[in-house]
Design a binder for these strands. Structure first.
Lengths: 120, 120
DNA sequence: TAATAATATTTGCATATATTAATACAAAGG
DNA sequence: CCTTTGTATTAATATATGCAAATATTATTA
């Protein structure tokens, strides 16, 4: 399995509005730099910076085609992650039924669930 | 579907070694603060900070049980994301077969794929 | 070979995030 | 009440990230 460090590296690569849009596009197919420049509304150097970050982190790569650099996905986790992120989830997870506190022994006996007191 | 902003918020919440460990644990069941203190090797205040961040971002919540606060997952995307992250993916995605450049018209004619020249 | 097109790199600054230490608070239990 | 236990908040500082502007690089076309 991928190390914690690698997972964090991947997540941080994705966790940016420009980059997640880039990846959503690349999930559909190869694109070159100026393609992104058009539909993201950021400068060319900035597009390049994001692409180069994604490449440094092993998420994407490119091949050269004349003057163009054609970027594509290489990390097989990306399409799956994007697909989860793009899924509609109906509702919150159910709250835990009881109170399975793990610090055994210290606070024994019955513990009924109390009000979910706000702490703001 | 969740907005870009919300996706980024979620990803950034997850993208930290302590927090992803916290979430991996919570995916197994309810835990209180001092449970984390043990198996993460960070101070109690730091654990609290991470938990409170996750709560602010709507990823987890807690109920009070005597002296303890029992934390649990609320965002239904989390278990799925963790499961993808914890999956072994055999290999890289296949490189694109040809060169489907989208900037039509500007560079017409045949474009053969060139060497994937390293740019380090 | 000069000009242009496409992309990349560097630098500096602003903002955001992380870590640590000190302190505060709140609920139980005596 | 007074103490202990469990958790939270604040403040100070360090580190990382993001962006814009200027400049560089590389391949193609004239």
């Amino acid at each position: 399995m991928r190390s914690i460090g690698k997972k964090i590296e991947l997540l941080r690569s994705i966790a940016h509005p420009a980059r997640i849009k880039i990846l959503d596009e690349l999930a559909k197919g190869v694109k070159c730099v100026s393609d992104f420049e058009e539909f993201l509304e950021i400068s060319q150097p900035n597009v390049s910076q994001h692409l180069s970050l994604l490449r440094r982190h092993g998420v994407i790569d490119f091949y050269v085609d004349g003057r163009l650099k054609c970027y594509f996905l290489v990390d097989p986790m990306i399409p799956e992650l994007l697909s989860v992120l793009n899924t509609d989830h109906a509702s919150e997870l159910p709250a835990p039924a009881c109170c399975p506190v793990t610090r055994k022994g210290k606070y024994p006996g019955e513990r009924k669930r109390k009000q979910k007191t706000s702490v703001e």
